[in-house]
Amino acid sequence: MKIARTLQSSAVIALCAVFSGACANPSDTATYTKQARVIESQSHLAGAELAQQTHRMQRAHKDLVEYHRALVTLKRRDDSSGIEAFRGFIEPYMADHVDAQLSQRNEAWNDELTTLDANLLFAKAELQRGLDDYWGLQATIREIRRRYGDQNDLLVEYPFGERNTLASALKSLRYKR
C-alpha cells in the first residue's frame, strides 16, 4: 500500500539519522545491527500505524470478550444448535482475524502491544475452552508459554475483567473448570 510505503521510507531515514554515530564505529557493528533491528521494527509501527495496530488488537480482544459472553449464554441455555452455529462463526473468525493479529507479534513491541498480545491469547484460550476445544486450548497455552514464559509478572486481563500476573492467569486458565 502506497501510504504504508511512504511511512516506511520516512522511518528508515529517521533511523539513519539517529544511528549515524554508531555507524561510524566498526567495533559496535553487532550492537548496531541488533539495535537497528529493534528500532527499525518499532519505527515500522510508529505513529498512525502503531495506533492502528493497538486499536485492532484492542478491538479483537473486546470482541472476543463479547463473543465469549454470547457463548456462555448459549451454553447456559443448553442451546446445542445455537452453539454449533456459533462455532461455525467463531472458529474461522479466530483463524482469520485473531490469529492474524497474533501473527503480527514482534519482539520489539512496546509494553502496551505486548500486553494486548498476551490478553488476546488468553481470550482466545477462553473461547476455546468454552467451545470444548481442548486441543486448541493446549496449543494456545503452549504459545503463551513460548511467548511469555519468562515474563511471569506481566499483568494480563484474565479472567475477563480482572488483572492478574501472567503466572497466576496461566494457572487459572489451566485449572479452571
Partner: peptide, 10 residues
C-alpha cells in the same frame, strides 16, 4: 436467533 447476540453485542 440467539447465536447472533454475539454480533449485536459487538
Amino acid at each position: 436467533l440467539d447465536p447472533l447476540a454475539a454480533i449485536v453485542r459487538t
